[in-house]
């Protein structure tokens, strides 16, 4: 038998950094995922937990489709790593209401026809919930400014605004409108009585 000399094997490809266990509390439920550190929170939700309500639009922090609440504060899950969120409480659109009992914002979005294709809607609703939690926006101008992190390609803005205003209204936070933009003076932030209906 003739001897076949074999060329040395090519070195194995550089090993990927190992995955690591990451504990996430999502919508009140604890999950431990074995994921690579470069997994964004958005990808962890969609690809590993099947929570596909949170949408990927731009993947660069520019559209707000991926908005979720972390400890009650709205963030863009596409620009955050899942490993950065151990110990925090994450709320997604799936956790805001149930099919039987929608959250006030979810109901208001339906009542006001605040979407067309619906792709931006979970992000809009989570963002609006974050806005309500912050308690800073009261007027239409303030709501517009503080909802500007959510883009709607269908241009449903005016109905989104009226949906958010209705919920704010019911919470009793409305004061009369004032222009509010960089350069203008800050609005009075004191909560006032809701207008009588």
């Amino acid at each position: 038998m003739s001897q076949v000399t074999q060329a040395p094997l090519a070195p194995p490809p550089v090993a990927l950094a190992p995955t690591q266990p990451v504990s996430l509390n999502i919508n009140g439920q604890a999950h431990t995922l074995q994921i690579a550190p470069w997994t964004t929170l958005l990808d962890a939700l969609r690809e590993y937990l099947d929570l596909t309500g949170t949408k990927k639009g731009c993947d660069h922090g520019q559209c707000g489709a991926c908005t979720v609440l972390v400890d009650g504060k709205r963030i863009n899950s596409c620009l955050s790593l899942a490993v950065m969120h151990e110990d925090s409480h994450i709320q997604t659109i799936e956790g805001l209401g149930t099919e039987d009992k929608l959250s006030p914002l979810q109901q208001a979005f339906i009542d006001h026809d605040a979407f067309q294709c619906g792709y931006c809607t979970p992000g809009q609703i989570c963002s609006a919930q974050g806005l309500i939690n912050e308690g800073k926006a009261k007027t239409e101008a303030e709501v517009r400014e503080l909802m500007s992190g959510n883009i709607c390609r269908c241009g449903a803005y005016s109905n989104i605004l009226s949906a958010v205003m209705e919920v704010l209204n019911n919470e009793g936070l409305i004061i009369e409108d004032k222009a509010w933009s960089a350069g203008a003076t800050k609005p009075d932030m004191a909560p006032v009585e809701p207008p009588k209906k």
Binding site: R74, I75, L79, G130, G149, N150
Partner: peptide, 16 residues
């Protein structure tokens, strides 16, 4: 400083 920060990015980004 309050005005300059609030003039930048978006509420979501400023939270991060």
């Amino acid at each position: 400083l309050n005005q300059a920060i609030l003039a930048g990015a978006s509420p979501q980004l400023r939270n991060m």
